[in-house]
Design a protein around this nucleic acid. Structure first.
Lengths: 210, 210
DNA sequence: GTTCTTGTGTAACCCTTGTTACTGTAACCG
DNA sequence: CGGTTACAGTAACAAGGGTTACACAAGAAC
């Protein structure tokens, strides 16, 4: 664990803090597709992402859902962080996008490290900043873009996060992430294929314009 | 200044911190409609809201704009806060919704107080949490609601923030805030009036369902 | 008063997206 | 092998909302 921890975080945290993290942190592996946090969950541990990628979704009571953003190595979930501090329930759902390794930190350490380590404070603030920026980006996307542009952006983001130009998704899954219907996605995907931007196969989409 | 500061923040900050704020903070008055922060501005001071209300807008390069949320007494702008810490430019535009009093804090104090005062740390974290929650709410609104529902919510929020059931806005101004066109707003307002939810006059709208 | 400006009401039309329905086909399973 | 299920393609239609155009009313300016 220490090796991966240092690999991912040595630019960010001072040595002493990395040591502390490796002592109290609990390593956790999550397979692609597995749920990590559900809406309404009480969050008692804060996750640091070592490897892999996590998809953050917003759901509402009527079963509507929407992809917010992805997290990668070096990220933490500021929403979760926020919940830890405030002792509130999770507002979001987190699902492993790839096989993922996390270090779970007990929230008691948060307060302690915040006063003790400047690098920790900076990391926490930067995480908040990064998440606010991502949320703004999400808002731009849904408020200012049409569905075909959103779809293309989605495929590009997904290809990037999975480090592969082939996106293994059914049209229905995409429809859920973009909060629309399967028929709409099929229609627009076909249009994008005719425009030469992607190539369609069963259960997968090759993104030609990255 | 000290009186208003204590009135708004005595539940939040310890006495010593309020004293420091009153010593280094610069009191600023802004009239309704006046711009406070423009997109791309470098932010060198962090604002604490004493009185009034501020409207936070997102703009894009094509002239599209969208209301994100309002700030009230006791709030600070976490986006600004975030910009201060990270030394980045503002991603949003802030406009006084009512006549407003602010205390501007030099960013040098931020770091100092963060390690010195626990109440300050908590305030900063809670501000981030509140802003993330507001952003989620904004996303819910634009992703999951129809324009008539969004319009009604907008009128209710606006009535609340202005502490008055009469909203003094032209249809065009509302259209800008909701990122749609004047004709659409006029159409839907008329529909809401027929449903008995509001009453229309020239330059103002009375909200009957608060 | 008359004129000009600004705000509002409304019709007609179009485009995007959502819905329903049906077809075909790949993959899987007994 | 046939039967079943999941996935994809597509047509036809409905609904929401954006666009253009024009009429009219309330104030403001003169």
């Amino acid at each position: 664990m220490l090796a991966k921890l240092e690999e991912a975080y040595h630019f960010i945290f001072e040595k002493a803090l990395i040591k502390e993290i490796s002592e109290v942190g609990i390593l956790k592996h999550v397979e692609a597709g597995e749920k990590i946090i559900e809406i309404g969950d009480y969050v008692k541990m804060m996750p640091l992402l070592l490897e892999g990628a996590i998809k953050i979704m917003r759901d509402d009571k009527d079963g509507d859902e929407l992809l917010l953003y992805f997290l990668e190595r070096g990220d933490t979930c500021a929403m979760t962080l926020s919940c830890c501090m405030g002792q509130t329930r999770s507002e979001i759902r987190a699902v492993a996008e790839r096989d993922t390794s996390l270090i779970m930190i007990p929230i008691e350490k948060m307060e302690e490290w915040t006063s003790k380590y400047k690098s920790w404070r900076n990391y926490v603030f930067e995480s908040y900043h990064a998440r606010l920026t991502e949320m703004l980006d999400t808002i731009d996307t849904i408020a200012f873009m049409n569905m075909d542009q959103r779809l293309m952006k989605y495929l590009q983001d997904k290809a990037k996060i999975n480090q592969h130009e082939i996106v293994n998704n059914t049209h229905q899954q995409i429809a859920y992430d973009l909060h629309t219907s399967r028929v709409v996605i099929s229609r627009l995907l076909k249009k994008l294929e005719l425009e030469g931007k992607i190539k369609l196969q069963r259960n997968s989409i090759e993104v030609l314009q990255l």
